[in-house]
Deep mutational scan, measured.
Amino acid sequence: CHSECLGNCSQPDDPTKCVACRNFYLDGRCVETCPPPYYHFQDWRCVNFSFCQDLHHKCKNSRRQGCHQYVIHNNKCIPECPSGYTMNSSNLLCTPCLGPCPKVCHLLEGEKTIDSVTSAQELRGCTVINGSLIINIRGGNNLAAELEANLGLIEEISGYLKIRRSYALVSLSFFRKLRLIRGETLEIGNYSFYALDNQNLRQLWDWSKHNLTITQGKLFFHYNPKLCLSEIHKMEEVSGTKGRQERNDIALKTNGDQASCENELLKFSYIRTSFDKILLRWEPYWPPDFRDLLGFMLFYKEAPYQNVTEFDGQDACGSNSWTVVDIDPPLRSNDPKSQNHPGWLMRGLKPWTQYAIFVKTLVTFSDERRTYGAKSDIIYVQTDATNPSVPLDPISVSNSSSQIILKWKPPSDPNGNITHYLVFWERQAEDSELFELDYCLKGLKLPSRTWSPPFESEDSQKHNQSEYEDSAGECCSCPKTDSQILKELEESSFRKTFEDYLHNVVFVPRKT
C-alpha cells in the first residue's frame, strides 16, 4: 500500500485506493498535508475557505447554543480562536489581540433580562453583547459592586439597553466600559436606550469621564423622579442622539420631579488639616426662599486615587461607600458681607490618608415646582503625618564578641513616609551569675543571650482551647457569634421535631 494509506488498500502504491488515510483526505486521495488554498479540518480532512465560511455563517444565523462559528488559524479551520487571539470578521482569520481579548457573548432569543446578581454573573467577562440587555433589578445585597464585577467589562451592545423598574439602582456607572450601543435591534418605538419607572436612579454616568455613542435609535425617559433633566440632556449631547427624540420621548413632568437638581456650584473657602482632623468651610448658599434650606450634607471617604465619582458603590438597598454628615444651616444675616460661612470639623480620621470630599445642599421643593440647590466639586484632601507606631517583631542576635545583629519589621501604621529608623542602645553591667558559677561542674549549661522565638506554653494553649472559665478566673470563653447562636437554635429545633416524629412513629394507638 501507499505510504499515506492506513489499515489496508485495494490497489498497491495508489493513494486513492486506501481504506483510511494516515494524515489527511483531499478529493478522494490521501495526502501528507493540505496544500494551499485548503485548510486542515478536524485533523483528517482538507477543506477550502468557502466550506469553513459556510459553517461560520450557519452557526451565526441559527443562534443555536453550542454550535461553533468556525475560524481560520495556522492553516486550520477550527471552532474558535485560541487564547490571546480574536477573529477578523472580513476573512475569519485569528489575529493577536492588542491588550485583553474581546469576548463576544451571543444571547438566546436576542435579549437577556438581568433581574438578579445570579443572572448578571452569566455575563461575567463579556466585552461584546450580541443582542439586547434588559435591566430589571428590584433589590439585593452589595448590588453596585456585584454588577460592576460582572457587567463592568461590557464595551458594546449590538441591540438596545433597557432599564425598567430597577428600584435598587442609583447610577449606571457599573457599566464602566460601555462605549457603544449599535441599535441594530430596537425596542418598540425605535428606541435604543429605554429608561422607565426607576424610582431611585439619580445618575446615568459621570459624563466628564465617560463617552457613549448610540449609532441608531432614540432615547426614552419616563417616570424617573430623581433623575434630573440636565442629566438626560447631557446624554443626548454626548451620545449623538440630540435631535432624534420626539416631543413625548422625554417626559418633562415625570423626570426629576422629586430630585434636588443642583444648578449652582458650592466653593470651599477654608481648608485646614491635622493628622486626624480636617476643618472645612464653604461659601454660604440661600435659595430664593431661605426657609427652603434644610441644611447641608457632607460626604467623605478614603480615596487612594483621584478618580472618585459621587455615586460609586451606591445602591438604593443601603450600600453606600460614603460617610454622610448632616449639618444645620448657619444663622442668616441681613448683611451679605457678614454672612457666616458654614463648615464642619471632621474628626477621627487616619493620618497621612487622602480623602475625597464634597458637600451639597438639602432643600425642600418650592411652590413653583422649581428645584434649587448647590453642590461642590469633589475635592481631595490629605491629612498630615504623625509619629508612626512601633516597629514590629524586633530580633537581636550576637554573632561574635563585638557585634549584635538587630532586625525588625516595619510598623503596622507608618502614618507617613518613613525615611529612617533611630536605634538606641545602652551598655549593661555583666551578670554576677557568670562569676559565681563553678565551671568545672559536669552538665553545666552556660547562660545564653542568643534570641529564641517566643512560644506559647501548654497552660496558655489549654486556656485558649477551654470553653469555660478556669477556677483562677484568668480566662473566659469568647462570646458566641450570631451565626453560632442561630445554628444552635436550628439544631435544637431539629432535635425537638425529630423526637416528636419518633414518638408518633414508635407509639401507635392500640386498636379498641
Results as ranks from 00 to 15, higher is better:
359 V>W: 00
322 W>A: 05
225 P>V: 10
161 L>E: 00
315 D>G: 09
223 Y>P: 00
105 C>W: 00
299 F>K: 09
273 T>S: 14
242 K>H: 06
409 K>F: 12
318 G>P: 09
334 N>H: 15
292 D>S: 07
228 C>H: 12
397 V>I: 14
159 G>M: 01
267 K>L: 08
324 V>C: 08
337 K>W: 06
146 E>G: 15
292 D>K: 04
194 Y>F: 12
328 D>G: 02
108 L>V: 15
401 S>L: 04
360 K>Q: 01
227 L>W: 00
263 N>V: 06
188 I>S: 07
254 T>A: 08
187 E>F: 12
107 L>G: 05
278 I>V: 14
399 N>H: 06
308 V>S: 10
322 W>Q: 03
167 Y>A: 15
261 C>S: 03
342 P>F: 10
401 S>Y: 12
349 L>I: 06
334 N>C: 05
393 D>F: 15
222 H>L: 14
314 Q>A: 13
292 D>P: 06
177 K>S: 08
292 D>G: 05
381 V>S: 03
123 L>D: 00
313 G>D: 02
327 I>F: 04
402 S>D: 10
198 N>E: 00
280 L>K: 00
338 S>D: 01
172 L>W: 00
311 F>L: 07
292 D>N: 12
159 G>L: 00
246 E>Y: 11
264 E>T: 08
262 E>N: 13
120 A>D: 01
300 Y>D: 00
301 K>S: 07
266 L>H: 01
214 I>F: 13
342 P>R: 05
292 D>F: 09
152 G>T: 01
349 L>K: 01
183 G>R: 02
232 I>F: 01
122 E>D: 06
320 N>H: 10
368 E>C: 07
342 P>D: 08
189 G>W: 06
388 P>R: 15
143 L>P: 06
315 D>S: 10
361 T>F: 03
235 M>L: 14
216 Q>R: 06
201 L>W: 05
172 L>N: 01
233 H>D: 09
211 N>M: 12
294 L>E: 07
376 S>K: 02
216 Q>M: 14
318 G>R: 09
247 R>T: 11
334 N>Y: 08
260 S>L: 10
268 F>A: 01
120 A>W: 03
286 W>R: 09
208 S>Y: 08
